[in-house]
Simulated assay, not measured.
Amino acid sequence: MLQFFQPVLFMAVPQINQWYAKGVRMKDFVITTDSNCDLLPGYIKEKRVGIIPHYYELNNTVYGEEVNLTPKEFYDSMRNGLMPTTMASNPAVIHSTFLEYIKEGKDILHISFSSALSGGCNNVEAGARELCEEYTDAEIVVFDTLNASLGQGLMVMKAVELKEEGKSLKEIAAWLEKHRHNFCLQFTVDNLFHLQRGGRVSKMTAIVGTMISIKPILIINNEGKLISSGTVRGRKKSLSTIVSNMVKQMGSYLGNPGTICVVHGDALEDAEYAVKLIKEEVKDASVIVNVISPSIGAHSGPGAIGICFWGENRAN
């Protein structure tokens, strides 16, 4: 059985489309996601989270599967003027990865990068549907996080936690559906030209904004899109702003913040400064820091900083 959780545009609640297979059974299941989740490699290995790679091309070489650049190499190449392009997940890789789990007798919960930012979610849905038509006793649930980076990764971590508590695949999917908009992301970039290249700002805005050190504040909204929520002047101000915005969004979660994540585009010093600000505001916070994956970093550029956290709702 394939279940696909997808938001319906212009409606307040999501629609759930379902494909039913023969029989009812209790089977073990695996949790998979894609490389844009930005989870720490050690966590992925320890929890045995399956990863579907997204890809990037740089200097006529495609990376993302067995061949990869280090974060430093990737971001330095951008600093030196190379412009990477990105590609979504490969249908053949999706098919082979899922088929391996099915042949092991396992069902699959796939927690996907936002469908509003990439075609990867659609690729996974298509692959899952095809496999479930052939293997009618298989169940694959594709959950569209409408999120990115460790905003998506936090959902994976919660799914793993619920699985370890003994929750079923359907129970976990229902929990994620209910709490989808409680996973929030505040973001800022250091260089407007990468946003301009992706069509997020005009060339004139990028030129003038860079000259006067304008820094955009970006969020992932309820539709899973990256949108601007304002601008500030100066790097330090942009970092303090995303932290103060986080505190406002957390609301009642301030008393029980859980894990807060800081992601960066090869800007560890600024990430550590953001962690310092977070711990000043949220005393009991457990903070994870990781580098932004290349297929996201190709659009946000070197120096980008994001904060992913639990909130009462996403700002729009």
Score class of each variant (00 low, 15 high):
residue 1 M to L: 10
residue 2 L to V: 12
residue 3 Q to T: 14
residue 3 Q to C: 08
residue 4 F to M: 05
residue 4 F to W: 07
residue 6 Q to D: 10
residue 7 P to K: 08
residue 8 V to Y: 11
residue 16 I to T: 15
residue 17 N to V: 14
residue 20 Y to F: 13
residue 22 K to P: 01
residue 24 V to Q: 15
residue 25 R to M: 13
residue 27 K to A: 12
residue 27 K to T: 11
residue 27 K to I: 05
residue 28 D to P: 02
residue 28 D to F: 07
residue 29 F to L: 09
residue 33 T to N: 06
residue 39 L to W: 02
residue 42 G to E: 13
residue 43 Y to W: 13
residue 44 I to Y: 03
residue 50 G to T: 00
residue 53 P to W: 04
residue 55 Y to Q: 05
residue 57 E to F: 04
residue 58 L to H: 09
residue 60 N to C: 12
residue 66 E to F: 12
residue 66 E to V: 09
residue 68 N to L: 09
residue 68 N to M: 11
residue 73 E to K: 12
residue 75 Y to R: 01
residue 78 M to Q: 11
residue 79 R to S: 10
residue 79 R to H: 01
residue 86 T to W: 06
residue 89 S to C: 15
residue 91 P to C: 08
residue 93 V to S: 06
residue 97 T to H: 00
residue 97 T to W: 07
residue 97 T to F: 04
residue 99 L to I: 03
residue 103 K to C: 08
residue 105 G to I: 05
residue 105 G to E: 11
residue 112 S to Q: 01
residue 114 S to Y: 01
residue 117 L to P: 05
residue 121 C to N: 10
residue 121 C to A: 05
residue 122 N to Y: 00
residue 124 V to G: 03
residue 134 E to L: 12
residue 137 D to F: 03
residue 140 I to S: 04
residue 143 F to L: 07
residue 147 N to W: 07
residue 149 S to I: 08
residue 153 G to T: 04
residue 158 K to H: 12
residue 166 G to A: 10
residue 167 K to D: 10
residue 168 S to L: 09
residue 169 L to D: 03
residue 176 L to A: 04
residue 177 E to N: 14
residue 181 H to N: 15
residue 188 T to D: 02
residue 196 Q to G: 08
residue 201 V to E: 00
residue 204 M to I: 15
residue 205 T to N: 11
residue 209 G to M: 02
residue 209 G to C: 06
residue 211 M to G: 12
residue 214 I to V: 15
residue 221 N to E: 03
residue 222 N to D: 15
residue 228 S to N: 12
residue 230 G to A: 10
residue 232 V to D: 05
residue 234 G to S: 10
residue 235 R to W: 13
residue 238 S to K: 08
residue 239 L to F: 12
residue 239 L to E: 01
residue 241 T to R: 08
residue 243 V to W: 01
residue 243 V to H: 01
residue 243 V to T: 02
residue 246 M to W: 00
residue 246 M to Y: 07
residue 248 K to M: 12
residue 254 L to R: 11
residue 257 P to H: 07
residue 258 G to R: 00
residue 263 V to M: 14
residue 263 V to R: 00
residue 264 H to M: 05
residue 264 H to W: 04
residue 268 L to R: 14
residue 268 L to A: 13
residue 270 D to M: 09
residue 272 E to K: 13
residue 272 E to W: 06
residue 274 A to F: 00
residue 275 V to H: 10
residue 275 V to P: 02
residue 275 V to N: 08
residue 280 E to W: 10
residue 280 E to M: 13
residue 281 E to R: 14
residue 281 E to A: 15
residue 283 K to E: 14
residue 285 A to Y: 03
residue 286 S to H: 14
residue 288 I to F: 11
residue 289 V to E: 05
residue 291 V to F: 06
residue 291 V to Q: 02
residue 294 P to G: 08
residue 296 I to N: 04
residue 300 S to T: 15
residue 302 P to L: 02
residue 306 G to D: 02
residue 308 C to E: 11
residue 313 N to P: 06
residue 316 N to I: 09
